[in-house]
Design a protein around this nucleic acid. Structure first.
Lengths: 234, 234
DNA sequence: ACCTGAACACCGTTCAAGT
DNA sequence: ACCTGAACACCGTTCAAGT
């Protein structure tokens, strides 16, 4: 083994992310510091900044990495378009996601701390919407459903549709929309179906926080009441 | 105005917590550092440690403070024992809690970061359980319900019943239980009803994470299916 | 192109010391 | 009893410099 062979392989964004996942798995999210990560990679802390813009970008990359792992666990994002049993399909998806999250208990916290989702996560959400649409959901119900599920399994950030920049809400330039519609047919469809809904007060972006909250709350309360009645009958 | 009159009032745990809430409200949780908080109180950072053990204890106090504010918003924890309309009662409670959380958007993050709940939070949970019991919930269903609601409104930490210390799970010393039963009749009752349930593998503490997850997931999926069918019919 | 050393502006916290 | 100064062991990050 020559000196050349011993010489460590150069860093790369992929290797940095890989080591970050590993470090978080082993020692927790708090232990994932730029300095500790560098040490793990036998490098000085400042070298990391060549491969990743800063710590926020590292965490963005981590979130995307986990979503990719979920996709693998699911065996891809494809699903039978003619299968109307959305419930079984979605349930399986979410349980796959949970299996991954159990391997990386820090993942939900990382998802929650991201302000906006990366392309991988958005594509994943689009496929979830696709499952619901194939199952017969209206755009409106699918939208509600995404909010209700946002706390579950994968941290679907409800902020997705609430850009900080008020201008970004009006990204309806024709070319842009066409390009998106190809890659993300379901998200695009949902946005178009929902935007004109009610240009009122409380809803600054696409979502009315309060009514989404009430939808989810009543869904849960109604479900519990049903269980209670079933118990009483039994 | 003499020099004495000008002299600032001495610090206290209450004043520290008050200032911490205010600072987090105004500048966000990230800006809430011991040093910045001290500056806000016209004091050196190290003075805070006389009134609060460390930053973790400060955050514990913050969580308790918010729960107290929720109690106030609800006009107390008392509820009509003979009122079987648990759904309306609980819904109102949760909406009050949400109103408070909207005033303190950082609160959920603080709740999530606490390992175990303080006495105020536990008392609040006990009263929620009381509402369910008055409405006819079995202990088992009430337990499931707490898990489902844990992501909603108030960050009921599901960890409550999963002590790190394995020994702590067996705190059944008669005196201890009796004292608890008085203050927290519902939580005590639930624990007694649930513990003997199934001393198997996956459930290390009182809760089986996986089955709680499935209960919540299916509750949500069933609710969505009901909405879909209603839509299709309409 | 890739990595480093030194430095800066921050953290939480301890501990001995002041009043 | 209550507060402080100095110090320690950490952070993330910039920037000029090395190969």
């Amino acid at each position: 083994m020559t000196a050349e062979a011993t010489q460590r392989t150069p860093l790369s964004r992929e290797r940095v992310l890989e080591a970050a996942v590993d470090l978080a798995d082993r020692k927790g999210l708090r232990a994932l510091t730029m300095r500790a990560l560098a040490t793990e990679l036998d490098v000085e802390a400042m070298s990391l900044y060549y491969h990743v813009k800063n710590k926020e970008a590292l965490l963005d990359g981590l979130a995307e990495t986990i979503v990719l792992e979920i996709e693998e666990e699911c065996g891809g994002l494809a699903f039978d378009d003619s299968n109307t049993d959305w419930q079984a399909t979605l349930r399986e998806r979410i349980l796959h996601a949970r299996a991954v999250v159990l391997r990386h208990p820090w993942a939900p916290r990382v998802f929650e701390s991201r302000k906006d989702l990366g392309p991988t996560t958005i594509r994943y959400m689009d496929s979830i919407l696709g499952i619901m649409r194939a199952g017969g959901f209206s755009w409106d119900l699918a939208h509600h459903a995404m909010h209700v599920l946002s706390s579950r399994a994968l941290g679907f950030s409800p902020e997705l549709f609430e850009p900080d920049d008020p201008d970004a809400a009006n990204v309806d330039s024709a070319e842009m929309m066409a390009a998106m519609a190809e890659q993300l047919p379901n998200i695009t469809g949902m946005m178009q179906a929902i935007v004109p809904h009610d240009p009122d007060e409380a809803k600054v972006g696409w979502c009315d926080d309060q009514s989404e909250f009430l939808f989810g709350l009543d869904l849960v309360l109604d479900g519990l009441e049903r269980h209670r009645v079933a118990e009483s009958a039994g």
